[in-house]
Simulated scan of single mutants.
Amino acid sequence: MTRRWPALWLACFTALGSSAHAAEPAAESAAERAAHPATTPPPPFAWESSEPLIRPPAGADQLFGVKDPSIVFHDNRYHVFFTTAGAGGWGLAYTSFADWKDAPQAPIFMLDKSPIGPGYRAAPQVFYFAPQKLWYLIYQGGDPMYSTTTNVADPRSWTAPKPFYAAVPDNVKDDKGQAGWLDFWIICDERKCHLFFTNDNGSFFRAETSIEQFPRGFSTPVVAMKERREDLFEASNTYRIEGSGQYLTLVEAMRADGRYFRAWLADRLDGEWRPIPGSDMNLFAGASNVKFKGRVWSEGVSHGEMVRAGIDQTLTIDPCKPLQFLYQGLDMVPGKKYEYIELPYRLGLITATGRNAISDLCKR
């Protein structure tokens, strides 16, 4: 998440102790999956992280960090949208590359040069809405906003921002009457599109509209989950798990060793979310289960997105392949003090290693 107001959350971030190494990630074979029937409790998630893949361009002295990535693979290229944090505030940017090894050298386009325009823009999400044959970019401009294009590879083609709501719903306002919603996320099933978001205070909200009405007609949000503020904080992202009849939701939380993600499963997007089995606090990814080939460059695992199996509004992931998650990692200089907007976030990729609760849902 990227706030429009200054804040200091550095107490959440503590340096990790030492470097670690892990074996190369590999997909589990059908025989190996058969040896672990669904009745066998899954082991905890385990991940291996890349080095930083996307960072502020060389010479961009006024940019401090890159955050909040959203990613699709289309026409044999990865298309990545993300937040920039700089001396001028928060904005959106885009980059594209054919292979992960090319990501560090890929040019970055600042989306304030498109009709999206300058001003506060943050926390993007991108998907192709097949019923309209349009790409949608969802982001926070204070309130939830969207732009569209017919060509995701042309960053200048996005339309000017439009709001989803004419006014802020009363039930997402705080005690002072200010909007308390952020990190907007849309996923659709066969009949409805669902808007999820958090409020940095332990509430996970959901609203809905019909496929036919989208992007208009969203209902008054309801609380889908409620926990302690630090245990259900921000940056939610939700996916359909191919072939399983299940949905996965990830929400960022906080603890002493940095930000981390927790995971829940549900049978329906408007159903009850239950903690994913396998580890304490339904841990998905964080400092305790991510290993690095080289230096431990990231303190925790923060706002990110899964690499999806497709591009459309169902946000489908394939449980039969090793999960990959593009995340923002905090690469701080030890002993240096930062204002919130100055935090040196970089984007890296974690890849799941071994069996886990999602790979156990593979039917192939």
Rank of each mutant, 00 (worst) to 15 (best):
A253Y: 00
K363F: 07
H303F: 01
I311V: 15
A167C: 07
E227H: 13
G300Q: 06
M306S: 08
A20W: 09
T220Q: 14
A224D: 04
S244F: 05
S298R: 06
C362F: 15
G243P: 01
R3H: 10
A23D: 15
P124H: 06
R274P: 09
D270T: 06
E28N: 09
W90Y: 13
M110I: 07
A352C: 09
D257W: 08
T159E: 03
H21K: 13
S29P: 02
E24M: 09
S359Y: 07
K192R: 15
P161K: 05
F109Q: 07
L361G: 05
F73T: 15
I138V: 14
A207N: 03
A7P: 03
M332Q: 14
S49K: 00
P322I: 07
G65S: 10
Q105K: 15
K321M: 12
P107Q: 05
V80A: 13
S49T: 09
E299W: 12
P144L: 02
F261W: 03
L326D: 00
Q105P: 01
Y239S: 06
A263Q: 12
E272A: 15
T2D: 15
A103S: 13
V296C: 14
G141W: 01
D360I: 09
T84E: 12
V296S: 15
F205I: 10
D61H: 14
H194V: 07
V223M: 02
V168N: 00
F325N: 04
A98L: 05
Y128S: 09
W47R: 01
P52A: 02
G245E: 05
G202E: 08
N356M: 03
P322S: 13
K337P: 01
G310L: 06
I187S: 04
V222H: 05
S19M: 11
L92W: 06
P42H: 02
W181G: 11
S219D: 10
F261S: 09
P37F: 00
D231C: 04
H36Q: 13
D175S: 11
W158I: 03
T353R: 15
Q324F: 10
S219W: 04
A85I: 05
H74M: 12
P163W: 03
Q246K: 15
T149E: 12
V222S: 12
E51Q: 13
Y120C: 08
P69D: 12
Y340K: 08
